[in-house]
Design a protein around this nucleic acid. Structure first.
Lengths: 156, 156
DNA sequence: TAAAAATAAGTGTATATACACCCATTATGT
DNA sequence: ACATAATGGGTGTATATACACTTATTTTTA
């Protein structure tokens, strides 16, 4: 059934056949993440790990909860996602003034890894933006933002 | 650092601070998938499982490879994702004329599950589309499609 | 036709994701 | 002050994701 269909039409087909907003965003995200994963492979980093280091590089210290909130990531997912970074010594987790809290900070080793990864990320990013156009990306981003607001503010 | 920031501004902040296309699409997709997961929970279905059943309901039989291609999902990921559906008897995997191939088909039990899930999916979907507007979604979808084409056709 | 290349799919491993439940610590109400 | 609420995090479990490697089968080629 699908085999005969030209590749260009498959997206249209999938979209018509499976109009689900969730499916279609997941589909695109899979492809995009695979792209960045491949781009970052020479720097020994996965997409998510790059994002985490990138976020941590912009603040001195941040607690699990706060970081999870900014990333719109479940708190427990963040714990798991940070674990490989911790193992590799790219981040440090300590104990806060509130002794329940676990402030996280990037290490100098982590900063070096991030700096080394930057050109690889840059290449992937500009590849996309050069072909898409900044204003188009801005438009998509605003749209995704809007959907995010809707799902966060309209509990079922 | 993040704690004081009002929620509305956090998206903007994250976007400015982490301009990565991959991060931002993943972030939105996490929220959206959580939303559909919650919506589909009463039907005992996850978002991905709903998509898979939905795709399978539109064809008589399809091989792993073909389905993986349509879904833009790694072939091995598909194998893993189908496994809970198989365990529950919602799909059937057989052996094709080409004895390497494994044609998949949805069972009548699977069809029933899908039908029961439909109103829950509908509610989540229309919640989003009613608040977003069909044309806006069309625009976003076209954008994501464009990015998908770019990353598929511009190997690094 | 037999050897080599290509193809369809599964497994081992590692990360990504989130819910339910648990523990430790802090804040609150009386 | 003490019992109770609330809060910050981690673990157990299950699914989602994909790469490297393997196996079985088909196709191609010398």
């Amino acid at each position: 059934m699908f085999k005969a269909m030209p590749k260009e039409n498959l997206y249209e087909f999938a979209r018509q056949a499976i109009p689900c907003v969730g499916f279609n965003t997941r589909r695109a995200t899979r492809l995009i993440t695979q792209y960045y994963d491949k781009a970052l492979a020479p720097a020994d980093l996965r997409s998510t790990q790059y994002s985490l280091l990138s976020a941590l590089s912009m603040t001195d210290e941040v607690t699990m909860q706060d970081l999870a909130f900014v990333l719109a990531m479940d708190r427990t997912t963040l714990t798991r996602n940070l674990s490989p970074l911790l193992k590799k010594g790219w981040i440090k987790v300590s104990v806060g003034g509130d002794r329940r809290a676990r402030p996280i900070r990037i290490t100098s080793k982590g900063k070096t890894v991030l700096e080394n990864a930057l050109p690889f990320w840059e290449k992937a990013q500009s590849h996309i933006l050069d072909n898409l156009g900044d204003s188009k990306w801005d438009q998509i981003m605003k749209g995704l933002h809007k959907i995010s607001m809707i799902v966060e503010e309209n509990p079922l």
